[in-house]
Simulated assay, not measured.
Amino acid sequence: MEPHSRHGKLVRDLIPQIIREDGAEPVTYTASREEYRSRLRDKLGEEVAEFLDADEDSAPEELADVLEVVRALAADLGVGADQLEKIRAAKAAARGAFAQRTVWTGNR
């Protein structure tokens, strides 16, 4: 992965427009594919941390942000939302999901 400056952060596509509408002029650039992938990974960590810190009222919105980044990462890997769901469903069929709240503590 190519190194990138830690200055700046990956933002949603409409953020520059929103900044302009608020009367400021954003300074932006388009990341290379390698930088984009790296920044998406950073963003996933950021969004997961925000979800973990969220209260019950804001948790769904924070979780939606996590999902947005996951979908962008999947697309970057060439995997569409439908294909990602098929992969998820196949894993759930083969190994289960998390619906039963099972906690493993080791083997006897």
Rank of each mutant, 00 (worst) to 15 (best):
G45V: 02
P16G: 01
E2A: 14
K43H: 07
P60I: 11
N107R: 15
K86I: 00
A75E: 15
E50Y: 07
V69R: 00
T102I: 15
R88I: 00
W104M: 10
A54T: 13
S32A: 12
M1T: 10
R41Y: 09
H4Q: 11
A90E: 13
S5T: 06
V27D: 15
I18M: 12
A92Q: 11
P26N: 07
D42H: 11
A94K: 12
R12H: 04
A99Q: 13
Y36S: 03
L52N: 13
P3M: 12
D42L: 09
L84Y: 00
R20V: 13
R88L: 04
I19W: 02
E68V: 08
P16C: 00
A74D: 06
A81D: 13
T105G: 14
E68T: 04
K91Q: 05
D57R: 15
A74V: 01
A97E: 09
V66H: 01
Q17Y: 09
V11L: 03
H4R: 14
F51D: 04
D42Y: 07
P16D: 07
E85A: 06
E2S: 14
V70I: 13
A54Q: 07
I87D: 05
A94N: 11
D22W: 10
D65N: 06
L14E: 14
G96E: 04
L44D: 03
L52R: 13
D76W: 03
D42F: 06
A54H: 05
K43M: 07
G96M: 02
G8A: 03
R39E: 10
L52D: 13
E56W: 05
D13R: 09
D57L: 14
P26D: 09
A54D: 08
V69S: 04
E34I: 06
G23H: 09
G23A: 05
G45T: 05
A75I: 01
F51R: 04
K43E: 05
H7G: 07
R95E: 05
L10C: 07
R108K: 14
Q100M: 12
Q83F: 02
P26S: 03
A92C: 08
A49V: 06
A75M: 09
A81F: 01
E85M: 08
E25T: 13
E61H: 10
V11F: 01
T28G: 01
I19K: 02
L73Q: 01
A75V: 02
V66I: 14
G45E: 12
A81G: 05
E62C: 08
L77H: 12
V70L: 15
E85Y: 05
Y29M: 06
E21N: 15
E56K: 12
S58K: 14
